[in-house]
Design a protein around this nucleic acid. Sequence first.
DNA 1: GTCGTCATGTAATTCGTTACATGATTTT
DNA 2: AAAATCATGTAACGAATTACATGACGAC
Lengths: 195, 195
Amino acid sequence: MNIRTICLAILAHGEASGYDLKKNWEDGPFSYLGGASFGSIYPALARLEQDGLIKSREETQPGKPARRVYALTEAGREAFVAEMSVTPEKDIFRSHFGIIALCTPFLPRETIARAIDERLKQQRTEIAQLEPLIEQEQHRSVGWLLEWGIAQFKNEVAFIEANRERLEVLAGSTKPGDRREICGIAHTDSTQAAE
Amino acid sequence: MNIRTICLAILAHGEASGYDLKKNWEDGPFSYLGGASFGSIYPALARLEQDGLIKSREETQPGKPARRVYALTEAGREAFVAEMSVTPEKDIFRSHFGIIALCTPFLPRETIARAIDERLKQQRTEIAQLEPLIEQEQHRSVGWLLEWGIAQFKNEVAFIEANRERLEVLAGSTKPGDRREICGIAHTDSTQAAE
DNA sequence: GTCGTCATGTAATTCGTTACATGATTTT
DNA sequence: AAAATCATGTAACGAATTACATGACGAC
C-alpha cells in the first residue's frame, strides 16, 4: 500500500487538489495512515494521471493561485476496487510509545514517566477531538469507525492508568548484560546464557 | 523512527545476529511495527557498528554457518535512551482494512463482505496466539502490553460484529459523482457543489 | 513588514525492497 | 531429490523525505 493507493482512496470521496490531499493527510481520518509530503503527492498524482486512473482540470479562483483539481476516472475507480479486494498484508502499527513499552526494563524511570504522561495527554486530546464528531450528520458513513477509534483510545488510557505503577517499577530493572527473552524469538546463542 | 532505531530496541534485550533480528520482525511483538528485509537489516547493522553504537563478534557453530553476533555498546544504549526520550511523532497505523472502512460507500458490497470475513478471521487468530502467552513467566515484563493488545483486538472484533449489517448496507451506497465530505477537510471547491 | 495560507512543482538525498549470489545442513 | 533452515551480504531499483524555488493575498 503506497501513496498512490491512498490518493485513490481520498479521491474516491470526490474531487481534490494536491493541496487538499495534503490536508487530508494532516488532519482528517486519513492522517492515521501516516504522513505524506508535497514531494511525494505531486509526483504520485502526475503518475496516476499518466496511467489514466485520474484526470485533472485547472480551476482559476479570484485572489488565489490556480489549482489543479483531480478526479477518479472509471479505470481509476476499478483499479481502486481491485486493490481493495486483494488479501491484505499485516497491518503496520509504528509507534514510539509501543517501542518504549516493549523496552521498559531497559529504559530509565524518568523516560518512562515522561512517555506515559505525554501519551495520556495525546490520547485524551484525540478522544476529545473525535467525540464531538459522532453527533455530526456528515460523519454518518464513518460513524462506527469513530466509535471504534474512540473506544480503542479509551481502552488504552484505562490500561495505562491501571498499570502505571507496574510500568514505572519495571523501568531500568534490567542492566545491559542481563538476558531477557521476548516471546522466545531472539538471542538464541548459547554462549551468553552460560556467562 | 527507522530500522536502525528498532535494531537498537531489539538489541537492548540482548545480543542478536542479523538473522535473529529478522525473526523478531517476523514473529515477535516487534513484528507489529512493520517488516524489515535482510537488504535493510545488514546495512543498518554495518552502519550502527561504524557509528560505534553496537559491536560485533564472530561466533562459529558446528554444523552451521558462522554468525556475527551484535551487542549494544554503552554509546549505543545512551543513543537509544536519548531517542526514546524525545517527544514522539504521531503513531502510524497503516491498515488495508482501515482504508476499506473509510471508503465503504464507494466499494462494492462483496468487497466489503470479504474484507470483513478476512479481518475477523485474522484478528481472532491473533487473539488465539496472544492469549496463551500471558501465563508464561518469560512474558512477565510485557504482560500488561499483551493484555492491552488482546483487549484492543477483542474490542475490534466486537465492533465489527455489532456493525456488520450497517457496514454492508453502506457499501456501494455512493456513486462516483456524489459528494461526500470526510471531517470537512477535502474537496473544498465550490464548482462541484453546484453541479 | 512579517507571518500564515493558498498553491504547485523539482532536485538531491535517504530509506527500504526485491532480486541476486553463495553455500552447508537438516528435514520431508 | 527437493525443500526448508541457517547464515551473510551486494546491486538495482523504487519510494518517500527534505530542502529548494516561486509567487500572490490577507491578517496582525
